[in-house]
Amino acid sequence: MRKVLLTLAVLAGLGLAGAAAVVGFGLYNVSAQVGHLPGVSWVLHTTFRNSVRLRAPAPDEVPPLDDPDLIALGAGHYATACVDCHGALGQPRSATVRAMVPVPPPIDEAVAHWRPNELHWIVENGVKMSGMPAWPVQDRGDEVWAVVAYLVSVQEGASPEIPSPDLAGLDYCQSCHGRIGGPVPRLDILSEAYIGTQLDAYLTGLRPSGIMAQAASRVPQARFDELARAFVTQSGPAGAGAGPDLGDIASTEERETGAELARLGTRDVPACLACHGGEPAREAAKGPRLFGQSRAYLAAQLELWRDGVYSHDDLMAAAARDLSDADIAAVSAFFAAADP
Rank of each mutant, 00 (worst) to 15 (best):
V4T: 14
V10K: 11
L16Y: 13
A19L: 13
G39M: 12
H45G: 02
H45L: 08
T46I: 08
R49Y: 14
N50C: 01
N50H: 10
R55T: 06
A56M: 10
A58D: 04
P59R: 01
V62S: 04
P64S: 15
P68Q: 02
D69W: 08
L70N: 05
A72Y: 02
L73T: 09
G76P: 01
G87L: 12
L89A: 09
L89G: 05
Q91W: 15
R93Q: 08
S94N: 11
A95H: 11
V97N: 15
V97E: 15
R98W: 09
V101I: 13
P102W: 03
P106Y: 14
E109R: 12
A110E: 10
V111N: 10
V111A: 10
A112V: 12
H113W: 15
E118D: 02
V127S: 06
K128N: 09
G131A: 13
A134G: 03
W135D: 00
V137M: 05
R140W: 08
G141S: 10
D142E: 14
D142H: 14
D142W: 12
A149Q: 06
Q155D: 01
G157K: 06
S159F: 09
S159I: 02
P160H: 04
E161I: 13
I162W: 07
P165V: 09
P165S: 06
A168G: 07
L170K: 15
Q174F: 03
Q174W: 03
S175L: 06
I180D: 02
G182M: 06
P185Q: 07
L187W: 12
D188L: 09
D188H: 15
L190R: 13
A193G: 08
I195S: 06
I195P: 03
T197Y: 14
L199Q: 10
L203V: 01
L206E: 12
L206S: 07
L206V: 02
G210P: 08
Q214I: 11
S217Y: 01
P220L: 06
Q221F: 00
E226K: 05
G236P: 01
P237M: 12
A238V: 05
P244A: 11
P244M: 10
D248I: 00
A250C: 07
S251A: 11
E256P: 00
G258M: 15
E260I: 02
L261S: 04
T266A: 08
P270Y: 07
H276T: 00
G277D: 05
G277I: 14
G278A: 11
R282A: 14
A284P: 05
K286H: 05
G287A: 14
A299E: 12
Q301R: 15
E303I: 07
E303M: 12
S311T: 09
L315M: 13
A318M: 13
A319I: 00
A319V: 00
R321A: 02
S324I: 09
S324K: 06
A326M: 03
F334D: 03
F334W: 13
A337V: 08
A337K: 15
P340T: 04
